[in-house]
Amino acid sequence: MALMRLEKIIKRFGTGTNQTMALNQIDLTIEAGQFIGLTGPSGSGKTTLLTIMGSLQGPTSGQIFFNDNEISQLNEKQRSKLRFNDFGFILQGANLVPFLTVNEQFQLVDRLRQKEGPQTAEQLLTTLGVWEQRYQYPASLSGGQRQRVAIARALYGQPALIFADEPTASLDSKRALQVAQQLADITKQTGQTIVMVSHDERVLAYTDQQYMMRDGQLT
């Protein structure tokens, strides 16, 4: 059974002459435990694909199955729940709540979900090398530290699927490769699945499988 399956996903923005076909008939199957890389030129639809898979927006047409359940027609409340319980996001820019310390970002999740996560915040932050920074606010962290906290936050609660949109773009190349290595390790160790957008060949080298996007189509 595939973890996620996309069938004939189309996404259009705008109307009439302003219309953009951001995604054009995407078919994609993602197996559990994979580290998947997504690359392609700017404007080719990578972010759009990631956000549709992550249930941040719906497709214009087509179907998305997550664990064999159709999720493209869910309402915003159901999507919110799905994102909270099953998905993790590592985004390019600000990922953290600015008025919470590193520690509190995790406490917030604890408060909102009833059960304990399988990995403690301490384990995750230690693995990613930012446990020392736990009492700091995001604004006082370096870009790399912030990104690693964001990764820890995305992994917390062990979501089945993690979406990362250019997670290493703001890091220097040494850090970028370190983060790529950590993401690769996670899929091996916990069986979590990661879909990562990146332009960086050396980062993509850590992935198990790569897709290329061009003009809204997978090649």
Partner: peptide, 16 residues
């Protein structure tokens, strides 16, 4: 707005 966007993306509901 942006912060709320992050929180919404993380699955924190609008109601919260």
């Amino acid at each position: 707005t942006a912060i709320y966007g992050v929180m919404r993306a993380q699955g924190i509901s609008g109601m919260q």
